[in-house]
Amino acid sequence: MYEEPYKWVEAVGNRRQYLDEQFKQGSPVVAVAYETGILLLTVSKGTPKLYEIYDRLALGGMGHPADLEKLRFSLLEMAHVEGFNRSPSDVTGGRMVKYGIAPVIKQAFEEVFKAPFIVKILLAELGQKAGKDAFLTINYDGTFEEGTHCAVLAASPAVEQEMVTYLRQPPTEGWSLEQAIGAAVRAWAVGDRAQRRMSEDVRENQESKADPTRARDEKNDAAALYSHLRETVAEKTIECALLDRQQGGFSKYRALTSDELGRLLPRDMKASLT
């Protein structure tokens, strides 16, 4: 059925559509550099979405938990075997992504007879010095991007762009942990709101009552974002992990406890959550 090339292209196109649909309800992931490290943040419902991969590598994911788990294990295997056979400093995010899982994800995506991975992955790598951090994201088709200072995962490239623009509005360098958490949680709200808007637009389009001006009225000011968070976060947990240069020992990853997070979240938002 797919022997003819154009049918294959069509099948891959359908697959793209199918996958895009899968991420619409997903929770965005935000990673941003602060003064002494990198902060990762998402809002999860039960299953965690942030993980430790290696001494200086952390993973954030969107998508199907079983797929995420499978790729997490292959990253862990790769990183530890490499770190043992060569040295921990040879385990870099770039190598893990480019030669490790990106080709695997791409292959699964294009093998139209098999199931693709329903995942988007973000890999944050803590540099030896501030400003040397690396942020990598991989899409469900295996395309990856590399950035500095911050990276996000969301349902569509447009939403991701909106979140990154929001994160970059003030200069992101030299943030304290508290500032970074505030910005990350607001950026998450920007993304989540954009995703909801996207699905509503689709629904309205179907009912042919689309109003393109409505969406643009929403403001990205803190108060509006906190009120969005108030509505959405209530029954979920804010998940937050750090790669902190100041942490003793080789492993720099640490998940923030709910107590710590309670202290560090912006005050305006805490009032709204309790």
């Binding site: 290696y54 862990l76 530890h80 770190g83």
Partner: peptide, 16 residues
């Protein structure tokens, strides 16, 4: 020592 170090790290990170 190297094997142990990696074993403990690997266990912690895979098994959470």
């Amino acid at each position: 020592a190297r094997i142990l170090e990696h074993s403990f790290k690997y266990y912690r990170r895979t098994q959470l």
